[in-house]
Design a protein around this nucleic acid. Structure first.
Length: 175
DNA sequence: GCCAGGATCGTC
DNA sequence: ACGATCCTGGCA
């Protein structure tokens, strides 16, 4: 089932954990891509030095300050896109980064890393600011099964510049 | 306008 | 361990 806006209007840590096991679904014309989310990261508030929102409200980050359930897509290192979904209440900048997806099927594909996820699902800036709850081009679906897995917490990747915030164990993954 | 640096990845 | 490659934010 398509995830509703209320799914994202919660603490970012919880949303990051709850997204594990859910499906990321992409439609390109009549073609459907689907994979199970296995790794996420939480970016929480403008005090979080690891978050783009730590620079305050800028043209780039204004989506993070908006309503939950919207996509935040940005280009990093001039070559890779990263997919996030906005969380919590309006005016509180927070989002969950989709770091890892497992594509099940004839030959299983492991997309370990946000850049690989976006490459496989053909996600670029044209999807930035899109509404997840519309469920048209890109959306999430609940897993329908109960959580048979254990959630592991770990330090976030690539944020060693973030002072004490680099130690926050806001990366979550399942095996 | 200019410039440093980045929520990464593949290759060396 | 390093380079690719371009957008962003900060400063002038």
């Amino acid at each position: 089932m398509l995830l509703k806006r209320s799914f994202f209007q919660k603490s970012t840590i919880k949303v990051a954990q709850n997204l594990l096991g859910c499906f990321l679904v992409r439609r390109i014309g009549h073609r459907i891509l689907r994979g199970r989310i296995i790794e996420t990261e939480a970016y929480v508030g403008s005090n979080d030095k690891a978050s783009h929102a730590s620079h305050g409200l800028t043209p780039r980050t204004k989506i993070m300050f908006g309503e939950a359930g919207y996509f935040y897509v940005y280009l990093i290192y001039g070559m890779h896109y990263c997919l996030n979904v906005v969380t919590e209440k309006e005016d509180y900048p927070a989002a969950v980064l989709i770091r890892g997806v497992l594509v099940e099927g004839k030959n299983i594909k492991l997309l370990n890393g946000p850049g690989k996820v976006c490459k496989y699902f053909k996600i670029d800036k044209s999807l930035n600011g899109g509404d997840e709850t519309v469920g048209k081009n890109l959306w999430f679906e609940s897993s329908r099964v109960r959580k048979p897995f254990k959630i592991i917490s770990a330090k976030r990747i690539g944020v060693d510049y973030a002072g004490k915030w680099k130690y926050k164990k806001w990366r979550f993954y399942i095996c």
